[in-house]
Design a binder for these strands. Structure first.
Length: 681
RNA sequence: GCCGAGGUAGCUCAGCUGGUUAGAGCGCAGGAUUCAUAAUCCUGAGGUCGGCGGUUCAAGCCCGCCUCUCGGUACCA
């Protein structure tokens, strides 16, 4: 690893349609920041790139809903996000945005080069066009009736009621949400990146040459590669984004996934220009190590699509590693922006001012490295009180207070070493290598634990040497003990620099010293005899139960609000006539047989006695009912529905079900237990 | 269903190419100690390594089947 001349470290670009929360921090920015701070401490040439992803349809929708421009939306959130990262000490060399001039230029040129060299395929397809608004409609801008559940407010990409993913062309009675008019089908041309052509290359590069990637990342890539890659559109009909820079592409922009990763390059260019440096070696020299820190939702883009783009361009190096983390849950539930189930960074600092490092510590110690992890406030409190306060803060305080007490703050001289001193120093020296090994293999939790071992070592050293006793009989011996204790404290300021930068700054204040570099970690001559240290203060404070309860209550409030929101009944459907209703032939029926349809999760194949006949019905209820439990059940069945084949079985009717907001299903049955075939009206 | 990742002490996790009594931190119990934010230090209890079968002199690690959790994908007339 030390062979690389320079390092280019990127962290996923957060989408600028909301603030950032602890999940973002734990999954991407804390690990990236730890890694980068470590490299800088070693004196490496490293650039740490961040920025906001500001294009794409969701931002335009948010803007429309709030009656402001997309630019207003991204300005607002870019500001909030950038500020949060700054406050938490995420030490980007540059934090820019994809709406910047530099980025538009860089992304355009990237596209132009690939286009000129024939790296894209062009395809024409039919898409919906709004003649009033004079533009093609993104999937999300089209609403209509879901062909599956008849929800009249399904979007062009998905019906939120039944969860089915849709194509706009599937919708019945499509409507443009821009003008309300009925959209028309119109031909449009788009450019595609032929990922399939890189399949063999990617297989070799990832599956053979990068077996060291994390199992979750490697496995996900393998899954994609094994199932075969397909050409992917790189442009969209939309007005918000980087315009497609070729003739006749009016009203078309680069698709966000194509534009966003180029943002890493653009932001590097911006940084280099400001520093008067050349950006190219960071992206084009084989002796540079490129590392992408991401969450698991971004694996395919960073491991397959972006590398394929870089390769097509030809000038670029490919990532050396893509440490992708899993997700962080909050109190046993998925973090959700829309449900406000999150700990927002800007709110955290209002409730816990100056406690950035506590959160950095807890998130680093509990990082979702190998599987989804859970953040709980109780754990947060325990780690603060039992680890940061009791082990780390306490040791620094002990050695500082004793130094004041015995020597008026002057570092005593190191005298003759006992065997135990030597053992302790050996232990101290060994920690550097352990932390390095962990960091270089992206095991951040483990690295943090190794750093904590240093504070534990300090506490143990004091407990075993007992300077407060020895001082009464052998003052010379105590000088050596305190010197070693202070050297350990100084070492803590180095070891924790990547993890807890605010705390190490405080230690330096207490010790009255400047910053050391990483290579000095393990040294026992960091503080010369006679050096005067400052008056000590506490590094960490206990967090009381009441503060934790307040946070729990805050979350419970969100939960209650959500439940209230969910229990509101969906709006009434459009009026219809009685004649329409009488067309429905609904009967009571009895389930005679039931079995799971093979190779499906939700489907049961039922044989139903309708009073008229016995017919087969396929029903998506397997998640609510077990086949063997519903035999003999009385149900309501819609008989005169056109038959339809599902998974090769002809379904001749539909069982009526009630569904609550959790998606649980229940049969509609007659309370008087009528015979099968009774008419329901 | 298919693909991927997981299921190891009460909790959060290590366990690298299979090798002696399965580890760490927190929590818990007992003891020591008082310089320190009742903090610290020592000792200890606690695990049929998701289940069943197999390969092997030897398996938490390899193979097969099953099961549960998370993610992707298919599926709900």
């Amino acid at each position: 690893m030390s062979d690389f001349k320079r390092y280019t470290v990127t962290s996923a670009l957060p989408y600028a349609n909301g603030p950032v929360h602890i999940g973002h921090l734990a999954g991407v920015y804390i690990p990236a920041d730890i890694y980068v701070r470590y490299l800088r401490g070693k004196g490496k040439d490293v650039v740490f790139i961040g920025g906001s992803d500001e294009h794409g349809v969701p931002i335009t929708i948010k803007a429309r809903n709030e009656g402001i421009t997309p630019q207003d939306v991204v300005d607002k959130y870019h500001g909030i996000i950038k500020k949060s990262f700054g406050e938490f000490g995420i030490s980007f060399d540059v934090y820019s945005r994809t709406t910047s001039e530099t980025h538009h230029k860089t992304a355009s040129e990237f596209f132009k080069k690939l286009h000129a060299e024939g790296k894209f395929i062009e395809k024409t397809s039919e898409q919906y066009y709004d003649e009033e608004a004079k533009q093609f409609l993104a999937d999300r801008y089209i609403m209509g009736t879901c062909p599956h559940c008849n929800n009249e407010e399904a979007y062009g990409d998905q019906c939120e009621k039944c969860g089915t993913s849709l194509s706009p062309l599937d919708l019945i009675n499509p409507k443009s949400t821009l003008s309300g008019s009925k959209p028309v089908k119109k031909e449009t041309k788009h450019w595609y990146l032929p990922l399939d052509k890189d399949e063999e290359f990617l297989k070799q590069w990832i599956l053979e040459d990068h077996k060291e990637w994390k199992p979750n990342v490697y496995g996900q890539c393998k899954s994609w590669l094994d199932s075969g890659l397909h050409p992917r559109a790189v442009s969209r009909d939309l007005s918000w984004g980087v315009p497609v820079p070729v003739e006749g592409a009016d009203g078309k922009v680069l698709y966000v996934w194509f534009d966003a990763p180029i943002g890493y390059i653009s932001n590097t260019i911006e940084w280099a220009a400001a520093k008067g440096k050349d950006w190219k070696p960071y992206w084009q020299d084989k002796e540079s190590k490129l590392v992408h820190f991401i969450g698991k939702d971004n694996i395919v883009f960073h491991c397959i699509i972006f590398p394929s783009m870089l390769k097509a361009h030809g000038d670029y190096i490919l990532p050396d590693n893509v440490p992708g983390n899993e997700f962080l849950n909050l109190e046993n539930d998925k973090i959700s922006t829309s449900k406000n189930w999150a700990v927002w960074l800007h709110e955290y600092l209002v409730d816990f001012p100056e406690k950035q490092d506590v959160l950095r510590y807890v998130l680093a110690a509990n990082m979702p490295e190998s599987k989804d992890n859970d953040f709980t406030w109780k754990d947060f409190q325990a780690r603060n009180n039992n680890e940061l306060v009791a082990i780390f803060g306490n040791f620094v305080n002990r050695s500082a207070v004793l130094t004041q007490k015995y020597y008026d703050g002057k570092v005593p001289a190191l005298g003759e070493l006992s065997n135990y001193d030597k053992e302790t120093i050996t232990e101290l020296e060994s920690i550097k290598g352990k932390i390095e090994k962990s960091l270089e293999t992206f095991r951040f939790r483990e690295a943090l634990k190794e750093a904590m071992a240093l504070a534990r070592l300090g506490n143990k050293y004091l407990a075993d040497t007992e300077p407060w006793k020895v001082v009464k009989i052998d003052t010379v011996r105590v000088e050596t003990i305190m010197n070693i204790s202070l050297q350990i404290t100084a070492n803590l300021s180095i070891a924790f620099e990547p993890f807890l930068p605010f705390t190490t700054e405080k230690i330096r204040t207490i010790l009255n010293i400047d910053k050391f570099n990483w290579e000095q970690l393990g040294a026992t001559d960091l503080l010369p005899a006679g050096h005067v240290v400052a008056k000590p203060f506490l590094l960490f404070d206990k967090i009381e139960d009441a503060e934790i309860e307040a946070q729990m209550n805050k979350l419970l409030e969100s939960k209650k609000l959500n439940e209230a929101k969910n229990s509101v009944a969906t709006p009434a459907k459009a009026e219809m006539t009685f004649d329409d209703f009488t067309k429905l032939d609904i009967r009571t029926g009895t389930i005679l047989e039931a079995e799971k349809v093979p190779k499906t999760k939700k489907l049961l194949k039922l044989l139903v006695d309708t009073g008229i006949d016995k017919r087969t019905v396929v029903s998506g209820i397997a998640e609510s009912y077990k086949a063997e439990d519903i035999i003999g059940k009385k149900v309501s069945i819609l008989l005169n529905l056109a038959p339809r084949k599902i998974k090769g079985i002809e379904s001749q009717g539909m069982i009526l079900m009630a569904e609550n907001h959790n998606g649980e299903l229940g049969f509609i049955s007659n309370e008087k237990d009528f015979n099968s075939g009774s008419v329901i009206s």
